[in-house]
């Protein structure tokens, strides 16, 4: 049901962990629905120098977290904000239909971390939405 790329990222996830001096932390999802993604970033001069994640969830949730972190590492904040769930899915050679929401969560986790960074920088960014299990 999963592509080889998904399996590979699940078996060997990139960028797992925390960044102690992160200046951007975002969390999306909800334990009740069975998936939570937490992203840590170290952003310097608007560039994502380092990114790590922690995920509670299924194989696709772990694989999309891994792929999304790879795709934004070294990118500018503006570039990272342009990352779509579709791009994450394509990079993983697709996802089963019922797992598409995992890629949406990955996109939102990146945005949530960047929003946190912007808030810390004094920008007026709205709060993250509440998560319900309807994807």
């Amino acid at each position: 049901m999963y592509s080889e790329k998904v399996m590979e990222h699940f078996a060997n996830p990139r960028n797992v962990g925390e960044i102690p001096d992160a200046n951007a932390v975002g969390q999306v999802g909800n334990a009740k629905c069975g998936d939570i993604m937490k992203m840590y970033m170290k952003i310097e001069d608007n560039v994502i120098k380092d990114v790590k994640f922690k995920t509670f969830g299924c194989g696709a949730a772990i694989a999309t977290s891994s792929m999304a972190t790879e795709m934004v590492k070294g990118k500018t904040v503006d570039e990272a904000l342009k990352l779509t769930n579709k791009a994450v899915m394509e990079a993983l050679d697709g996802l089963p239909k019922e797992k598409i929401h995992c890629s949406v969560l990955a996109e939102e986790a990146i945005q949530s971390a960047i929003n946190d960074y912007r808030r810390r920088s004094g920008e007026d960014v709205p709060e993250d939405k509440e998560y319900t299990c309807e994807h």
Binding site: E18, A31, F56
Partner: peptide, 8 residues
């Protein structure tokens, strides 16, 4: 668990 934010 080491990968899970709930386990922190």
């Amino acid at each position: 668990r080491d990968m899970s934010p709930l386990y922190e």
